[in-house]
C-alpha cells in the first residue's frame, strides 16, 4: 500500500533525474563545463592563430592558408622533425610498454621486499623531465662517462664512443624514455591485481602450467591495459618535449629535434619575432596526426583486445 502512494507522489523531475541518459549527462557535466570553459576557447583561438601571422607583440593578421602551405611545401625542418618524432615514437613506445609489462609480471609477487622494488623501478618516472635529469644524462653518456666506462669492459671498442653524435644521439633520448617506464608498469601492476584468482585456479585445475596460464589467462585479460598503455605512450612520444629541449636541444643537426621543440622554437624563438601563427599551424597538424594514429589504434582494438 505504501508503495503505491510513493509511486503516485514521484514527480516527473525525479523520474527524469533517474533516467540513464540524464544520469549520464549529469555525471559528465564536470567535463562538459571544463571543456567549454577552459579548453574550447583557447583551442579555437589557437586554430584562429594558425591562419594568421602573429608575433605576439602586435595583434594577429589573417593570412589564410599561408602557414599551412609553407609548412607542406617549403619547410624542410618540418619533415625532419616529424621524421625524428615518428622514429622516436615507433621505437620508444613498444620498448617502454614491453619493459613495463615484463617488470610488472616479475614484481607481481608478494615477497616482503617487493614494495621496495616497485618503488625503485618506479622512481625514474617521478623525476620526470627535470633539469637534474638532463645534467645526469649528459654526464652519463658523454664519451668519458659512466655508460662507456661500463660498456667498454664488455665491448672494448666502446671507449670514447660519442653518444651525442648525429647517429646515436636519438638513442640517448630513447633510453631515457624507456628508463622511465615506471608509470606504465604501475598500471600493469594494478591490472594484474584485478585478475580474479579463480581464473588462475580454474586453469590450474585444467592442467595448465605457468606459461600456458600466462598466455591463456593473463595476457588476454591484460590486453585492454596493454592497449591503454600503448595509446597513452604513443601520444606521449609524439608530444615529448623536455628531454629533447634540455639534453640535446634538437642537435646535432636536428637529429634529435622533436616536433614539439621545433614548434616551441617557432613560438618562442631564442631571438627575433615570435611566429606564433606558424607554430599554431604546426600544432594543429600534429593534433591531426596524433588523432589519426589514435584512431587507427582504436580501429585495431577489436582485433586483438579481449573485452571481458
Amino acid at each position: 500500500m505504501s508503495n503505491r502512494s510513493l509511486e503516485r507522489r514521484e514527480s516527473g523531475f525525479t523520474r527524469w533525474f533517474h533516467k540513464e541518459s540524464t544520469a549520464g549527462l549529469i555525471f559528465s557535466l564536470p567535463f562538459i563545463i571544463g571543456f567549454l570553459m577552459f579548453l574550447l576557447i583557447p583551442m579555437a583561438l589557437s586554430l584562429y592563430y594558425s591562419f594568421c601571422k602573429y608575433d605576439i607583440q602586435s595583434p594577429p593578421t589573417w593570412i589564410g592558408l599561408d602557414n599551412y602551405i609553407k609548412i607542406f611545401t617549403k619547410d624542410k625542418t618540418f619533415s625532419k622533425a616529424l621524421g625524428v618524432t615518428v622514429y622516436f615514437a615507433l621505437i620508444g613506445t613498444p620498448l617502454k610498454v614491453i619493459f613495463a609489462l615484463i617488470v610488472a609480471l616479475i614484481l607481481n609477487h608478494e615477497t616482503r621486499a617487493v614494495g621496495f622494488y616497485r618503488a625503485t623501478y618506479y622512481l625514474p618516472s617521478i623525476i620526470g623531465g627535470s633539469v637534474a635529469v638532463a645534467i645526469l644524462w649528459r654526464r652519463m653518456f658523454e664519451s668519458n662517462g659512466t655508460i662507456n666506462a661500463i660498456l667498454s669492459t664488455i665491448f672494448p671498442g666502446m671507449t670514447g664512443f660519442n653518444w651525442f653524435g648525429e647517429g646515436p644521439a636519438i638513442w640517448v633520448l630513447i633510453i631515457l624514455t624507456v628508463w622511465q617506464f615506471g608509470s606504465s608498469m604501475l598500471i600493469f601492476l594494478s591490472s594484474l591485481k584485478q585478475i580474479p584468482m579463480e581464473l588462475y585456479e580454474a586453469a590450474s585445475i585444467d592442467g595448465a602450467n605457468g606459461i600456458k596460464r600466462f598466455f591463456h589467462v593473463t595476457l588476454p585479460l591484460l590486453t585492454p591495459t596493454i592497449f591503454f598503455n600503448l595509446v597513452q605512450q604513443t601520444i606521449n612520444s609524439f608530444l615529448a618535449f623536455t628531454q629533447s629541449k634540455l639534453i640535446t636541444n634538437g642537435g646535432p643537426r636536428d637529429s634529435t629535434l622533436f616536433y614539439t621543440v621545433y614548434q616551441y622554437n617557432k613560438a618562442f624563438p631564442a631571438l627575433g619575432k615570435s611566429q606564433m601563427g606558424y607554430a599554431s599551424a604546426l600544432a594543429w597538424i600534429m593534433l591531426v596526426i596524433v588523432s589519426l594514429v589514435t584512431f587507427l589504434l582504436f580501429k585495431s582494438r577489436s582485433k586483438w583486445v579481449y573485452d571481458a
Binding site: R138, E142, N162, W163, F164, G165, E166, P252, R253
Partner: peptide
Amino acid sequence: NTDEIANVNVDDIAQ
C-alpha cells in the same frame, strides 16, 4: 667538428 661539439657542453660555463 659537429659531432664532437655535441659531445661537450658549450652552453654551460661550469661544463
